[in-house]
Nucleic acid binder design. Structure first.
Lengths: 247, 247
DNA sequence: AGATGCCATATTGTCGACAATACATACCGG
DNA sequence: CCGGTATGTATTGTCGACAATATGGCATCT
């Protein structure tokens, strides 16, 4: 319910890959989405009871889902204290974006190589949605769609390992942007995405990789500059506590 | 017990990163090691009761550990049937090595950039061990040490995200080699590793990346050639059932 | 004799109750 | 009035028992 606000792009392809029961899969997916949408902010407590009620499942399923999320660095489990949405410190933030810089150029290269006309159509339709969200000043949609664009690229690249890694990195990047990012410049300008799509039409793999590298570097710079003064925001996000898990 | 047969390299740095209790961490780590060592072969059933006894822990901890392993693609959980060491099919095998080709060159580049003299010493000492294992025809040690070399590179690169991904990929690659790989040519020739270490001394990042790319491609070729006739081995590994979990 | 259906057994999945730990409040002493 | 301590409450961690499902053997029928 809280999730699909945009009619298209409703199916996001599962993250955990039917590795566990369908219950855990759905729960993890929903929480991932909420993190990418920044509806769940860093430091938010995820109490088991609340989640049980929200998802109408037993405590065990919640527990297992939280464990999976923790193993992906999206949730932090503190013994005898509970589970919290992760608050990446500067080192973790650096590592996440360094990893994106290392991986995503390769991903987009493969995506360009393998994209079908249908895929390109999907990307263009998606770009339109992004543009609309930006114009309407709909920040939440803009962020989600922006992340989704990168995930779509990984889907087109058609590599399950990379897709999983990218999904994890996108979610963690959302958290990082939430903590360290400037409120206005958040996420990607959609212009960069447009340039990327152009390389798909021409099939220019190497150019696509370069553009992606530059694109991510741009985001990273917007963040690193804020590193020093962001410790306040970090503490804030830790201590303002509960933002009420939607239900 | 079954694990550290080589005196050095005893500590392998945890994989799951203190995300869960120390129990799960250890169990996951031990099973990972066993997979990399090829002591646990694809298709092996991991019964909960047996693991409970082997690790002297409650069923819950085993269950959670298996879930984590499944989320990393090392274990396959089939509903109401149990957990089995994963048997990657050709697509999965392809994806794993494609991912390694995409990521590891970047990893080694960072490693070269950040390696201290101490790190290089460790690598050289490790290379010696690899060489010894090869000369002695100690296949099991050779495989383990070979995988460990790649993990050491990720450790030197000092990026937690990439380290976790690499560990997962190494384990899955071990499974793939176990299924599709030629018995003799298994794992990496240590010559390639030697060449790589040379680039560390000279600080040649780009060369290191190229060498790594070529190195992985070499392994991949050894595997792809065997793809067609390996379907027998695949079925075999699925149906011959239990290879006795050591304990 | 071969195949099919049924039953016993073993393993997994799920739930509930209890124990342990941390947090918040209230109480007491300085 | 403030600090420290102790108790009560809430949440998490763990364990055990029970239910559900798949596997394997056995009897029966064709």
């Amino acid at each position: 319910m809280t999730a699909n606000q945009t009619p298209s792009d409703s199916e996001t392809t599962k993250l955990v890959g039917e590795t566990a029961g369908p219950k855990e899969e759905q729960i993890v997916e929903r929480i991932f989405e909420a993190v990418v949408d920044q509806r769940l902010r860093p430091g938010t407590k995820l109490s088991e009871a609340a989640l049980c009620e929200a998802f109408n499942v037993g405590r065990m399923h919640i527990r297992r889902s939280l464990l999976l999320l923790a193993s992906r660095g999206v949730v932090e489990i503190i013994s005898n204290r509970g589970a919290y949405i992760a608050s990446p410190n500067e080192k973790e933030a650096h590592d996440v974006f360094e990893a994106r810089l290392a991986i995503e150029p390769s991903v987009v290269k493969l995506a360009v190589r393998r994209a079908t006309p249908t895929d390109i159509d999907r990307l263009e339709k998606h770009l339109l949605l992004e543009h609309t969200a930006h114009e309407n000043g709909n920040r939440q949609d803009a962020i989600r769609l922006s992340g989704l664009f990168h995930i779509m690229l990984a889907e087109i690249a058609n590599n399950s390992v990379m897709l999983g890694t990218i999904k994890e990195l996108i979610a963690r990047a959302s958290l990082i942007i939430g903590i360290y990012g400037a409120p206005g410049v958040s996420s990607c300008r959609d212009d960069d995405h447009k340039e990327l799509i152009d390389t798909f039409i021409k099939g220019e793999e190497e150019l696509a990789a370069s553009l992606m590298y530059a694109h991510l570097n741009k985001i990273l710079n917007n963040i690193d500059l804020e590193q020093t003064n962001s410790s306040n925001e970090d503490l804030n996000s830790i201590f303002n506590g509960t933002t009420e898990v939607g239900a």
